[in-house]
Design a binder for these strands. Structure first.
Lengths: 195, 195, 195, 195
DNA sequence: GATGAATGAGCGTTCATTCAT
DNA sequence: TATGAATGAACGCTCATTCAT
């Protein structure tokens, strides 16, 4: 027998997620500047006072969106089978595909990156993600160097940093300059001799 | 002999500039989200009503800041003497120095880039600047290819795009991840064989 | 049994009405020129932000006041028993009594008449009311002519127009020239041979 | 020889008049609500600060407009030749013609009438004008009664009041309901047996 | 007399948040 | 949990008026 109590928790989680998604899309379309608690609540079909039962403050909602967006960008997933070159290629390809399929995610991520400079809670998310991402890229590159797929004088760490910097630049350009981003990715792959 | 009339125009221009600068720093520190006309006016020591004497609306002030910031980032300057490699190297070095000396400019530029996706007036500024920048990079690279400084199979346009994408990523990281940006730049210069 | 739900709507309606009344009196005393939403809200004992809970804009409040004032001036009521002469007499008497009892209503109505020249929403209210009023007056007069209470050569329409014009002039004078209005009404009734 | 001093006074008077006219038209189009000192000044081609050399306050300008408008409506002019009936007929005809030729004057006069209820300075102008007007109408009517042009039981004073009330109602309707005003005037003239 | 610059006071409106129900 | 009502604080902006030049 299902009591109402059994349902409350999943319902609560569902609604939290709906609110995060609604906020996410608001930010994608109007930036943090245009984010309105009332609007987010309305999109989910609830009163804005009710939203505060799920997120005590607007800031809490924003943090949840930040966590959600960052987790959406899977850059430290468990590596599938493949040589380092294949892994790196797959990594970039996957990111670029995601950029094309849901540019909104990358717009939001850039908003978050900018906001992280003034918001320590968000900064932590970002730092963590970037650290893991950098580590993973470095380990792929180092493995490749050891296997002779890249020259021994390639700086694995620097190249990892460059890839991240690059992807962040692409995130910023994907919506307004998609062609430039495509060219950039192609060039990056050539430099990494995985093109 | 200096009459009062001679001074009136410069004074007005001065105050306009002061307001733009104050707004610029507000945006650098708090983003567009945190930009308040009262605060900007106070920073300059005037009443907010007086600010509207110089900028009819907040939006006009924002556009002036955008124009100012974009013009500060000189990426299409008349080329100094040098070979294409030297030119490109100087270009990147100069940008990186500017990033270190005034990271605020790059933070604001990123804010502007983001806002340009929702503001057509700003979008025009950005488009124009990016077009000029891309053109200049391409011409440097093509000249270098012709002179044999870069392999003939280097895609000048793609590389130019990659450099821009890259610098935009660096702009986003310069404040919170300066080390990563430094490594990235070093790697980019190696890829461009100008390191 | 009265549930809270039963009460919510009347409460909301009550407050709306209170606000309309407060705005009405503000207009009566200070004209549209002197109407301040903060003041209206304060008169009702609420924050001005709360007023916007009931009326999204000042203009919406003004329209509600216009509708209220026009509806207060009942000039197209279902006719009570009586001959056309009696009806017309009762009509004028009633209007004059209302002028004396609540001159504020007529002041506000004049403000509305003036504003209707620049405000199409209000213009509609006014046009509708005047059309209905004119029609009713005309039908009373025509009935009277048919019954021989007025000479056959009386222009029912013209007389109806004259009565309306007359009442509007009286509305304008009732506060500052009550004696003149009294004399005017007396004279009008004599001309209509109902005095 | 004409010195600049000789010219200053007439120039000053001219400019004052221009400003009054500009304010008059502003009020006619937008009411007192929409009257802006800056706009009036701009219409005359001067700075709003300069306007304050001619009228110390907005209120002073408004009073000047009130005086101007009231003086424009000549209702106490020295009587031309004619019988009382002819005089009264000419009086009404002239007013109606003026209404058709420059309805703006009557709109402004109604604004002034309304404002006079809250502004003692304007109230004086209005009272004075109305007193003179009423006196003149009464004397015409009384003369006519004495000469047998109107029945002896016509109340001269009441009829004078009625005419004034009537014209004020017509002023309010001339712009939005010209047909109704025309019918009203025709009816009034019939009642006065001057039609 | 004329003006550009400046301002204080105030305006209508917004919005995240609180609270009684 | 859900909400309508309420609010304080603030926002961008307006405007008559003042003042130094």
């Amino acid at each position: 027998m299902i009591t109402s109590k059994d349902e409350i928790t999943p319902r609560r989680a569902d609604r939290r997620e709906s609110l995060i998604l609604a906020a996410f899309h608001s930010i994608a379309e109007q930036g943090f500047e245009g984010l309105r608690v009332r609007e987010v609540a309305a999109q989910v079909g609830i009163n804005s006072a009710t939203l505060h039962h799920y997120f005590p403050t607007k800031e809490a909602l924003i943090q949840a969106v930040a966590a959600y967006a960052i987790q959406r960008l899977v850059v430290t997933e468990s590596p599938p089978e493949g040589t380092p070159r294949e892994l790196l290629r797959a990594h970039l390809t996957r990111l670029y595909q995601q950029m094309q399929q849901e540019p909104a995610l990358f717009v939001v991520l850039t908003e978050i990156r900018l906001r992280s400079q003034r918001n320590s809670a968000i900064q932590q998310f970002v730092q963590q993600q970037q650290a893991g991402w950098h580590e993973r890229l470095t380990s792929i590159l180092q493995a490749g160097i050891q296997q002779g797929q890249w020259p021994a004088d390639l700086h694995a760490e620097d190249a990892a940093s460059a890839i991240i910097t690059f992807i962040e630049g692409a995130s910023l350009g994907i919506l307004s300059h998609p062609r430039r981003v495509a060219q950039s990715i192609a060039q990056l792959e050539r430099w990494l001799t995985i093109g």
